[in-house]
Design a protein around this nucleic acid. Structure first.
Length: 376
RNA sequence: GGGGGUGCGCCGGAGUUGGAGAGCCGGGCCAGACUGUAAAUCUGGUGUCUCUGACUGAAUAGGUUCGAAUCCUAUCACCCCCA
């Protein structure tokens, strides 16, 4: 993998870059649609590529391991072959499930034991098996196993958890370096900064993670319920320490405003379920604000969903029709709304990149942020 | 035309066989939530008002009774059977 910072914004820490993988290059800053189970819910790969213009998508180790199972993905020839997405992919390690499925897991030094949410069976994920499984899934960028801590998190627990995450990160790196990709292209491993909302822990973590000297670094444990200002503050502490010449990935973030604020702090990569999940639940993002398309006020509004959208479906179909589809729980509604939101997110980071290249990102961001959180 | 039955919430169902319903379940509807996806999910609201409390309410109009959704009479609507 190669990463190059192409331009830096004069008035902030925002940068535009290019990340090259064996499945193609990624122009940053970038938003990565989440496709947990090997699919970005509701979209064909063709739509993801040609309409949404996604450059890289996510998969999830825990979910793919449980279903369809590692063996099936190996037999398919890797996840790219299995789902037909030929561009770059990234897999999360299962570290987020340590947080989201906290009722169903036990953490030990060796690793995490999950009780499957599908059939209740027990499965042990260690740093080593997390790497092995991700080698078999075959994403271009794979993640270290970490513990994503909740918010709020007591200092004592955050301290203990952070030390474990660091030991796991080291084991992930060691195991990664002893193994190779099985499908003939390169993979790269990103370790993850943790430390909850504590400055000393975050700074220590950023230093330790940077010392591992991988090709890119991630920030985890944010967007778990803390106020947005706290998220920005932590991101700022960490970005000051993580090397500038390597990509910085802020995991699980976020809203359009979150994206712009964190790009300004020096983040290059984002992923989040918000655009797809909220789309299915009827919340649409536009440059003028958000729309709850289920609201009565759109019942007879036959204007386009978003005349400024890059997606033809959002210019073609009306608000009233989409409202009807979502209300009726019609599959097409989820599809149109998901295409809409993802198109907007990809448009937004593309615009951000262009404004960084043009040198007026900071002003543009200030203007955009005024409207993004308005409820239309 | 004759006989029998049933009527309460926006809809469907349950329940109430003289003793305190603004009241059960589901749906609909109206809102809200959602951030490395156990999520096409979850939460709340859904008679009226001057709203920490009141008022009205069991098809409609009367009647019996201390007390009626429940019993009686008439009317209306719907369903079933017979002609």
């Amino acid at each position: 993998m190669k990463f190059e910072v192409q331009s830096t914004d004069p008035a902030s820490n925002a940068r535009a870059g290019k990340l090259e993988t064996d499945h193609g290059s990624i122009l940053t800053p970038i938003f990565m649609p989440v496709g947990t189970a090997g699919t970005v819910k509701g979209l064909h790969q063709k739509e993801l590529d040609e309409v949404v213009k996604a450059q890289i998508i996510l998969g999830n180790t825990y979910h793919l391991y449980l279903r369809p199972g590692t063996e099936t993905i190996r037999k398919a020839g890797g996840l790219h072959k299995f789902n037909g997405w030929t561009k770059p992919m990234l897999t999360d390690s299962g570290g987020y499930q340590v947080y989201s499925l906290s009722q169903r897991r036990k953490i030990k030094e060796e690793g995490v034991t999950f009780r499957s949410h599908i059939d209740g069976s027990s499965h042990v994920f260690t740093p080593e098996t997390a790497i092995d499984i991700q080698r078999e899934i075959g994403a271009d960028i794979i993640m270290a196993l970490d513990e994503c801590t909740p918010y709020p998190c007591e200092y004592g627990y955050a301290r203990k958890s952070l030390d474990l995450t660091h030991r796991w990160a080291k084991r992930c790196c060691d195991h990664f370096d002893k193994t190779t990709g099985r499908y003939g292209y390169n993979q790269t491993l990103f370790p993850i900064v943790q430390g909850s909302t504590y400055k000393d822990l975050r700074q220590e973590s950023a230093e330790k993670i940077a010392e591992l000297d991988r090709e890119g670094n991630a920030i985890g444990g944010l967007s778990v319920g803390e106020p947005a200002d706290k998220m920005y503050e932590v991101t700022e502490w960490v970005c000051e320490i993580l090397p500038k010449e390597k990509p910085r990935y802020l995991m699980g973030v976020g809203t359009p405003t979150n994206l712009l604020e964190c790009i300004a702090l020096g983040i290059d990569m984002f992923d989040c379920v918000l655009p797809t999940r909220n789309a299915r639940h009827g919340l649409l993002y536009t440059s003028n604000g958000t729309i709850n398309i289920k609201n009565l006020k759109w019942k007879n509004d036959f204007s386009p969903i978003d005349e400024n959208s890059t997606a033809h479906t959002s210019r073609f179909y009306s608000k009233a029709y989409l409202r009807h589809l979502i209300h009726s729980k019609e599959i097409l509604g989820a599809q149109i709304a998901s295409i809409h939101n993802l198109s907007f997110f990809l448009w937004l980071v593309g615009e951000a990149r262009q404004h960084i290249l043009d040198g007026d990102f900071a002003e543009w961001k200030q203007m955009m942020v005024q409207n993004l959180d308005v409820r239309l």
